[in-house]
Amino acid sequence: MTVTLVRHQFTVQQYHQMADAGILTENDRVELIRGEIINMSPIIPKHSGCVIFFTNLLVLILQKLAIVSVHNPVVLNEISEPQPDIALLKPRADFYRNSHPQPEDIFLLIEVADTTVKYDREVKISLYAEANIPEVWLVDVNQEVIEVYRNPIDGIYQDVKNLGKNQVLSILAFPDVNINVSEIF
């Protein structure tokens, strides 16, 4: 006898209702990916240090050109609300107080990974491509490499580059901004 497991898929609206009802709290480190509530990994110092570095650098370099959002949700569609490590957002007067950012609000998403590189690459990067996020960086703190994903077409990034130490990273939306990868690690 074969047993078929049935999974219940949640919408972003249902996910928010669970938070409103107290089923999920601010202390729950979860995100909604393709309708499933996924536990997020604990953050080690190497990971948090990289996020802190990027946050400070991007705020300093971009000043009023973009909003730097850290560990906050972005709504990609009706069933996915991930929390990337950093989201570089289009400026808005309300600073996204009235609604979470959506794909058209996003310049760049950054995922910093130590134990989740495979998951981020296979699940989250493809999710971002499907949502037409113009640029995503996957920062592998163990290998000290940054994977740059650009130009999503039909849910697949067409331009993928790996950058290591002494190479220069630029932001697609702000091509004059250059970051030496060696500074990050």
Rank of each mutant, 00 (worst) to 15 (best):
E36W: 03
Y149T: 01
Q9R: 15
M40K: 11
L89V: 04
A129R: 01
N151K: 00
H47S: 09
K161W: 08
I133Q: 00
F107W: 14
F174H: 07
D159V: 08
K90Y: 10
N180H: 09
P152W: 04
P82H: 02
Q102S: 12
V75H: 05
S126H: 06
I125F: 03
E183Y: 15
L127S: 01
P101I: 00
V141C: 14
H16L: 14
P175N: 03
V136I: 05
L5T: 13
N56L: 08
V112M: 10
N56W: 05
D159S: 11
D176Q: 04
N132Q: 13
V12H: 11
I146T: 05
P45N: 05
F95I: 05
V12N: 13
V30I: 12
L32Y: 10
V51D: 03
D20L: 13
Q9N: 13
N98T: 10
V74L: 09
A19C: 06
P91L: 15
I146L: 12
N166A: 10
T4G: 04
R34G: 10
Y157M: 00
V59G: 05
D140F: 01
F107A: 06
H100F: 12
I38W: 02
A21V: 09
L24K: 09
E122W: 11
A66M: 08
Q63W: 06
Y15A: 02
Q167L: 04
I106E: 06
T115S: 15
D94P: 01
S99E: 12
E31K: 05
P84Q: 15
R121N: 06
V68C: 01
N39P: 14
E81Q: 10
N77R: 05
L169G: 01
Q63P: 01
F10I: 13
I37F: 02
D159N: 14
F10H: 15
L169N: 01
N166R: 08
V136T: 03
K124P: 03
V74Y: 06
F95L: 13
S48P: 15
P91I: 12
S170W: 10
A19Q: 15
N166K: 10
Y149L: 07
R150G: 00
D154V: 05
L5V: 14
L5E: 10
L138R: 11
N166Y: 04
D120H: 11
E31W: 08
V181E: 02
E104S: 13
M40Q: 04
E135R: 00
K161L: 13
M1Y: 08
L58Q: 03
V117C: 07
L172K: 12
E36A: 07
I86K: 02
E183H: 14
I125D: 01
T2S: 13
V68A: 01
T55N: 11
Y96L: 04
F53I: 09
F10T: 09
N180M: 08
V160R: 01
R34H: 13
L127I: 04
K161V: 06
I23K: 07
N27F: 06
D85G: 12
Y128K: 12
I33Q: 02
Y15T: 03
V75K: 07
P82M: 03
